[in-house]
């Protein structure tokens, strides 16, 4: 029997948390492509031929990987995770305030 390829649905959403930093007067047009290029080693031509979901998956991985390299980046990722939470952490609340 042929071995079935395991299909995965990667996460695509890029971690984000507001930092309050000013963007400055100039923006890089192809910043996302550069981040993925540096992470994968793909050239721009190859990146342009990726499907958007493949590109977004790589971009997310590249950003998470880059952030994990520094203390500041790890703090930012933690802020992103907190920013995404919509439910209260009942366990922590119970521990902090007690059962009553």
């Amino acid at each position: 029997m042929a071995k079935q390829i395991e299909r995965i649905k990667p996460k695509l959403k890029i971690p984000y948390a507001p930092t309050g930093e000013r963007k400055g007067h100039y923006e890089v047009n192809m910043l996302e492509e550069k981040i993925v290029r540096d992470y994968t080693g793909y050239d721009f031509d190859r990146l342009n031929n990726l499907s958007v979901f493949e590109f977004w998956a790589l971009l997310r991985d590249a950003i998470v990987y880059n952030c994990k390299q520094t203390e500041e980046g790890r703090k930012y990722l933690n802020d992103c995770w907190l920013h995404d939470q919509t439910e209260p952490d009942r366990g922590a609340l119970l521990k902090y305030f007690g059962k009553h």
Binding site: K9, P10, L12, K13, V52, F53, D84
Partner: peptide, 10 residues
């Protein structure tokens, strides 16, 4: 496209 991107969050 947007929903697909957001549907599998971190």
């Amino acid at each position: 496209l947007n929903k697909s991107k957001e549907s599998n969050p971190n």
